[in-house]
Amino acid sequence: MDPDSVADVPRVPHGGDDDPAVVDFSANTNPRRPPGVAHVYDTAFGAATRYPADDYADYRVAAADYVDCDPEDVAPTPGGLAALRLAFGVTVGPGDDVLVPEPSFGEYDREIRLQGATPVPVAHDEVLATDPADYAAAVVCTPNNPTGEAADPEGLRDFLARCRAADTVLVVDEAFLDFTDHPSLAGAPGAIVARSLTKMFGLPGLRAGFAVATGELGDRLDAARPTWGLSVPAADVGAYCMRQSVFVEETKARVAAERAEMRDRLRARFEVFPSDAPFLLLGDDGDVDALLAHARERGFALRDARTFPTLDSHVRVAVRLPEENDALVETLLKLR
């Protein structure tokens, strides 16, 4: 991290609402958790009186099986954002330019600036067609947040090949990829993949994730990751969750069905962006402040997407449980 840059880098707004009186559609986390996860957490609490084993062997194996890579290429991190900080920390520095999608996750910009580097925005749907030469790193978010579309796997691998030829590191944020059937890029030479367990498993407060890279990049990640960076409960619960394949498949099917129904109904009033993620971006030609207030007064928190660059009349809504989704859609369609 560049000490001269830290003071000039602001915090980034995010979704998430802790008001118990509202249903939170502003954060894209699964409202369900794998069965048995509370027991694993309770059991792990007893072991938290000791330092965790810093090799995190079981967690690495579970993560490697989850994304189909080698365990030694996995760097455990306390969440996907920590994986991104680690990725940028070992690849970019002052004077470097980094290609980033726009609109997309605001923390890319922040984390790159904290390293003293400069984020260079490109339209999110044009990144794969951009020449990666002259950039120290390039970022792809798949599916992209907040627009929701996943990158074409073949196009992504072609872009990675061009990044390798240009000696540009490709950082791939796959926080929502497990809601799709697309393969992970984990283990591909020249790429650093960042993964989060927050979204699929509905445990944002646990802070568990990992980064994956091979060769010299993998060695850098392992050397730079903080010692004991993952708590015992996070490691044990994370490993357990990544082995719950039935839960993952059931969640993917539920989200896909609910997202399609929400999309079809909401099109009567909004511009609804194509999505492969557990959320939908809605364009509204009316008063967004009035829309947000209308929803909140009726018990729903939405994500004000105007905080994303280039979006000036948009909200983002998560895909939650069927009865909650139905109630939200009915509420939004009633606003005139």
Rank of each mutant, 00 (worst) to 15 (best):
M1P: 12
V9L: 11
G15R: 04
G15I: 04
D18T: 12
S26K: 09
T29P: 00
T29D: 12
G36P: 07
D42M: 11
A44N: 03
A44I: 00
G46F: 14
A48T: 14
A48S: 15
P52M: 03
A57E: 13
R60C: 13
A63I: 07
A64C: 11
V67R: 07
D68E: 14
G80W: 05
R85I: 00
F88A: 07
D97I: 00
G106C: 07
Y108M: 05
I112Y: 09
P119N: 09
H124K: 06
D125Q: 04
T130C: 09
A136S: 13
V139P: 06
C141A: 14
A151V: 05
D152Q: 02
R157Y: 03
A161I: 01
R164A: 10
R164H: 00
D167A: 13
E174N: 03
D178G: 03
H182K: 08
G187P: 05
G190F: 08
L197Y: 01
T198L: 09
K199S: 12
K199V: 09
L203F: 04
P204F: 09
A208H: 03
R220S: 13
W228R: 09
W228F: 15
S231I: 04
D236G: 00
A256P: 04
M262P: 02
R263H: 14
V272N: 06
P274W: 02
G283V: 06
D285V: 02
D287C: 11
G299T: 06
F300M: 08
F300I: 11
L311H: 09
D312E: 13
S313R: 15
R320F: 04
E323W: 10
E324V: 03
L328G: 07
T331D: 01
L333H: 04
